[in-house]
Design a binder for these strands. Structure first.
Lengths: 108, 108
DNA sequence: TAACTATATTATTACATAGTTATATAGATG
DNA sequence: CATCTATATAACTATGTAATAATATAGTTA
């Protein structure tokens, strides 16, 4: 990590904050590499429609999702699939940490 | 991203939340690949000592920092340097997005 | 032991935001 | 035009947490 200014760090933190909500991660996972309508997402993740709409807006404004309007449906897709790699990295770190902890406990 | 359960997504979200604070990113950057005492960090990032201590605890409990006590000093280091890669990925995505936006504006 | 140093903790305040309910908007259809 | 459907927005409440001020802890030194 090159020496980033506080302004940049604040922008980076804001990006992380968008990913710091379980429901938004559910939405991301639900959308995957497809393009999905709002109603479809609402149905799949079982959250209220206004709540999903709000989260979608947050992710769109953060540049994580791209919105397309057609007829009276709105479709969303992931802007950059590398976001899934990030989630996998975190997930992998968590897994490793839990395995290590399990080994320690096994020695007791 | 493999189909992750909501429980796992919640843990992942929690990890992202730890990175979602500018001051914590400052601390991460300050620690870098060194091992730093609390006082050193406090001095460098110019935040209050209790505030830094609290953030350090949060990051330690999240498994992002490792603490070592020696004499009456506490030293912290980064558990997994790949965390810097994650920050760089976000930073790169931001940069790209801003460049794209700049090009669009240039056409007006 | 008293005073000093480094770090952690507690209580408090202020602010951000997730979720809900109700409503608005806007395109489609009868 | 009236109604229906899909999505977005607004107002509100509740919760989480960052920062601060004050204090505690614990090791060090005189």
């Amino acid at each position: 990590m090159k020496n980033l200014s506080n302004d940049v760090l604040e922008m980076v933190a804001k990006q992380f904050r968008v990913l710091a909500e379980p429901v938004r991660l559910q939405i991301l996972q639900c959308v995957g590499n497809e393009e999905r309508a709002v109603g479809e997402i609402v149905e799949r993740i079982k959250a209220s429609q206004p709540n999903v709409s709000k989260h979608l807006k947050v992710m769109q404004e953060a540049g994580i999702l791209i919105r397309r309007q057609e007829k009276n449906n709105a479709y969303y897709r992931v802007a950059d699939p590398r976001i899934f790699d990030m989630c996998d990295m975190v997930c992998g770190a968590l897994k490793k940490r839990m395995e290590t902890r399990a080994k320690v406990l096994a020695l007791l």
